[in-house]
């Protein structure tokens, strides 16, 4: 579904060149629950953003269903993200002036499917147990509720792939469990999930784990499967 072919990424910061990714080859198949882990600065987030069409690699290609996404125009790449991907980040990045309901609904509006969007928002919110908090602003929600809103936003439009960067990083045990179970459920429903995490509970959920060390895949290649 998504293929990274010899992807390298070099940042230039304060005149110094930092290699974040080095010749990474990775294939993500439909229905995968792929865990990317590694120490801080190993290039996990860079790889996630590169797969998500957010960060152009210095060399190599990223293919989605056979199309090199970085050969697309900026607009087409935005459309690729809008139609196929759902993003989650450790910091949630909720729009602070929109209610939880509007935050969740935003991707549906972007896709031009506002009809029935309220029902869809409520359905997802009920699954994440935030249906009583839909009219609240993010600042009025607990951290766990905010992350669940972010999760609802990521999956509400039915993306093919969920890309999550440390989705449970700021959460307590209970909320980590809710999020992990939700991701597991989405994966069982056929959704492809790619997660960058240090969370052992999440790592155990993946059907594939890869580790990055200094920008390189360590151990099994991306096409190996653990189970």
């Amino acid at each position: 579904m998504i293929q990274a072919q010899r992807v390298s990424k070099i940042y230039t910061r304060s005149g110094a060149r930092v290699r974040a990714l080095a010749d990474v080859d990775l294939t993500v198949e439909r229905g995968d629950f792929l865990i990317i882990h590694g120490s801080s600065g190993s290039g996990k987030t860079t790889l996630l953003l590169t797969l998500g069409g957010m960060l152009r690699p210095t060399s190599g290609a990223v293919l989605f269903q056979g199309t090199d996404i970085y050969s697309l125009t900026t607009g087409k790449r935005a459309e690729y993200r809008r139609r196929h991907l759902g993003f989650m980040f450790q910091k949630f990045f909720l729009v602070p002036y929109l209610t939880a309901s509007d935050n969740i609904r935003f991707p549906l509006v972007l896709r031009g499917t506002p009809a029935g969007s309220q029902e869809r928002v409520r359905e997802v919110a009920e699954r994440l147990r935030i249906d009583q908090r839909l009219n609240h602003l993010p600042a009025q929600l607990s951290v766990g509720e905010q992350q669940r809103v972010a999760m609802a936003r990521a999956i509400v439009a039915g993306p093919d792939v969920i890309l999550a960067d440390e989705p449970t990083g700021n959460l307590d045990r209970e909320n980590r469990g809710i999020l992990a179970q939700f991701l597991r459920d989405e994966n069982r429903r056929g959704r492809t999930v790619v997660v960058v995490t240090h969370d052992d509970d999440l790592i155990r959920l993946g059907n594939r784990n890869i580790q990055l060390v200094a920008g390189r895949l360590d151990g099994p290649r991306g096409d190996d499967r653990e189970s």
Binding site: R83, F89, F93
Partner: peptide, 12 residues
């Protein structure tokens, strides 16, 4: 932050 996430979501 809002701009970043909106761009990630495919907002132009």
């Amino acid at each position: 932050h809002e701009t970043g996430i909106l761009l990630a979501m495919g907002v132009s």
